[in-house]
Design a protein around this nucleic acid. Structure first.
Lengths: 340, 340
DNA sequence: CTGAAAGCGCTTACAG
DNA sequence: CTGAAAGCGCTTACAG
């Protein structure tokens, strides 16, 4: 690899002049510029970005930390949408994405801290796949700007998340409006903050309607996948007095419930109404297509990247930005049998 | 941010000694080591990885170039599987992934060249989403090792791809064995090398059976998505003498054909047998579940990463590695109506 | 066991 | 318009 010195030699100028040509600075005579450009071409010279990074302090890399097992990340369309949104924005700013995940599942929390220490990046986005509050001290002392996709924690400069609370509230209102009174809710210990907000939204909708929410119908699973949804469906629907509707707090859980219903000939929405959350691409093609609460993962990722670029430019983005959700009514919900 | 000099000052030693403690070199007295570690803790010192990268020539970053529009990448489960496999292997080697995509669709080819020039990385993996042959000159003169997920091009140190040819041949043999003679084939101009191999595999199976392959049943679409599959299905199935089977050369195309069949009450596999390629997670849950040719995207990505780490260690991995495919027979294929 | 010095390959004031 | 010099923050022989 040729260095800037070799280029300078060949062109008969100083490295400083080559540097000026490289960065398109003015005050270089046309003749000199031409000679330098020729030398660059002759030597197929490419500036060393690490050296440049050391002097300028900018490497044009945006860190994206998703502190979770890769197997879970790549199985989660909503997370992939967030990554997509970040990549889209990074791309437009001529930044590359440095993607980091946790090595093992148990490793997730420590991965966050380890990763944040001294990586090669100008700024970072942390996806709140787990509670970050314990990491806040480590996060707070990072020398570069970072934002979170999720709920604000101590020291966050900016946080972007969907309106989980009202999204869940809307969906519950809708089910109550259809006449459902026994509504099963399937949650998970994964992604705690967002899912807790959704549970609160459900409770708020019941309270608003002056109806009691039967907490025994709230199931909190260990995981987020379709298998957990299937199990939850089994638990709820085998009860002597099963719910007439199930609100699964993620679409993947909902898809699992749907599979249980299919396999046990429980008609959806005939005998069971089913609502999901996220609106991943899959659910529109399920049979029946799922009613769900849309939260735009792409927009979340994009907004987070925008916020981080704003910080990099010295601007102060909104500290806590909440993106609206939207109830998407499809074919998996109807009035309960006794009301028809 | 504290530097190594400040740590050295506080501990009353030279920066060289701090460096030795940092990299766990021997020949540092226990007492000195303790003092240095204390100073590091006091100052919350984190070594600057860019500076370290400049001196050592290693940054522990693996570049992953997917020279395609992000919208297409994140809609393509097979590509995501490859990325997943690369991330998995990188993670295990304590490397982070620098993900790069093309800014715009038309930009794809140039993106490849631009990107390969002077990025911050130790090695790279290029996913052959389009023909790379034109980029081979630029690729060949990179100072770091790089491998391709796809077919070898001039100058490649290592290439890993699935056995597209035999995979397609197996599937075609199977359809011929069921009694199908008029087999529609849906290909695309995207991902040219792999899909061309699949077409060759189809032709080879016909030739082997001594049967003519009707080239008018081969449709080459502009894109790879389900919409193109839908269109292809329409074109083939509206013909006066429609094929009794369709082999879509990617699962996403197959899903589009399936949608067309559903919407036009064409029974699968009753009146139409359908085969895909890739075995993305979706197709096992389609109704009917799709017969397809499995190629393990995850394994491709992982093998590519392994090859690149071998190169980094000075080993020479296989120049051209071919991963086997497997025909997965599910519910979308049956003997043609006239044979039952 | 420890440190002074040089060097990695750039860019940035500054002087001319 | 051009260049000499210092500096970014480390590591690596080398000498002691």
């Amino acid at each position: 690899m040729a260095t800037i010195y070799e280029v300078a030699n060949r062109a008969g100028v100083s490295p400083a002049t080559v540097s000026k040509v490289l960065s398109n600075k003015p005050y270089v005579s046309a003749a000199t510029r031409a000679r330098v450009e020729q030398a660059i071409a002759d030597l197929a010279y490419v500036p060393n970005k690490v050296a440049r990074g050391l002097t300028t302090g900018r490497v044009f890399i945006l860190g994206l930390l998703v502190p979770w097992d890769p197997n879970q990340i790549f199985a989660d369309p909503h997370l992939l949408e967030i990554i997509h949104g970040v990549e889209h924005a990074a791309n437009q700013h001529d930044y590359n994405l440095l993607l980091s995940t946790a090595r093992r599942r148990a490793d997730a929390a420590s991965a966050c801290e380890r990763w944040l220490r001294g990586n090669i990046l100008d700024a970072a986005i942390v996806v709140e796949t787990l509670s970050l509050q314990e990491q806040s001290a480590a996060l707070a002392q990072q020398p570069y700007p970072w934002v979170v996709v999720g709920y604000p924690i101590t020291g966050t400069r900016a946080a972007i998340h969907a309106d989980d609370y009202h999204g869940a509230m809307d969906a519950t209102r809708y089910l109550l409006g259809l006449g459902h009174r026994r509504i099963g809710v399937v949650s998970s210990v994964q992604r705690p903050t967002a899912l807790d907000e959704r549970v609160r939204g459900v409770q708020a909708a019941f309270a608003e309607a002056g109806l009691p929410f039967d907490e025994s119908l709230l199931l909190v699973m260990d995981d987020l996948g379709a298998d957990d949804g299937y199990t939850a469906g089994a638990v709820l629907l085998r009860r002597p007095n099963p719910p007439s509707a199930i609100f699964a707090l993620t679409d993947r859980l909902a898809l699992g419930v749907l599979r249980y219903a299919h396999e046990h000939s429980i008609s959806v929405p005939g005998s069971l109404s089913l609502v999901g959350f996220d609106d991943i691409a899959l659910v529109a093609h399920a049979s029946p297509p799922l009613t769900t609460v849309r939260q735009a993962g792409f927009a979340l990722g994009e907004a987070a990247a925008r916020a981080v670029f704003a910080l990099l430019d010295g601007d102060e983005p909104p500290h806590d930005r909440v993106l609206p959700t939207e109830l998407i009514v499809r074919g998996s919900t109807a009035a309960p049998p006794e009301r028809r």
